[in-house]
């Protein structure tokens, strides 16, 4: 087998391996700024040695098998678990947040092996104490909806940061809107 033919063969293999994953992801509507194709270049070609066996062996590193920081980065980058945003002073779910939560629920149903924490956040404009409660309400609203869609409630917990850990530090409408959110964080794997 020449180098060229090996490369072609690998390209074909990559398509076989990645197409089902992509097909699955299409439902999830990743955020526009990060196309799901970004995962493709991660496989080191030299590690694939298909001549050893008759059947095709997929040795692509499983992005969900690594450490938890990398898993979180992967699911965020690919829009598998996304943040849910709230109106000013509210913990009610909007149509937009319900549709985002439906996508999160779909991924969580497919991955019951993860423990997930839903973190509730607020913008800086309420009082610190009341915002702590509001953040808990937001996280609980997101968790309740996810659970109603069949995602395993046993591996889901809530945590409110109120206004104590904003992701955006400026005092502007744009920042405030980004800070009023429920964030999904994978914290570990369910013990078997």
């Amino acid at each position: 087998m020449t180098r060229t033919r090996l490369s072609l063969w690998l390209a074909a293999l990559a398509i076989v391996v990645l197409v089902p994953a992509c097909a699955k992801k299409k439902v999830q509507a990743p955020p526009p700024e990060v196309p799901p194709a970004a995962v493709q270049p991660e496989q080191p070609a030299t590690e694939v040695e298909p001549r050893d066996q008759g059947a095709v062996v997929d040795q692509t590193p499983d992005p969900l098998a690594g450490d938890i920081v990398a898993v979180n980065e992967y699911v965020t980058r690919n829009g598998l678990l996304g943040d849910v945003y709230f109106d000013f002073d509210k913990a009610d779910l909007t149509e937009e947040s319900r549709s985002r939560l439906a996508k999160n629920a779909e991924w969580l149903r497919a991955h019951p092996e993860f423990e997930v924490r839903i973190e509730g956040h607020c913008d800086e404009r309420g009082t610190n104490e009341y915002n702590l409660a509001l953040g808990e309400r937001r996280a609980a609203a997101a968790m309740g909806y996810i659970a109603s869609l069949g995602a395993s409630a046993g591996s889901l917990t809530t945590l409110s940061y109120g206004e104590e850990r904003p992701q955006c530090g400026e005092s502007s409408e744009g920042c405030w809107a980004r800070n009023r959110r429920a964030h999904f964080l994978i914290t570990g794997r369910v013990a078997r």
């Binding site: 913990a91 808990e136 609980a140 609203a141 309740g144």
Partner: peptide, 9 residues
């Protein structure tokens, strides 16, 4: 103190 019972504080 305040404690959450689900969404109810």
């Amino acid at each position: 103190f305040a404690r959450a019972l689900g969404a109810n504080i």
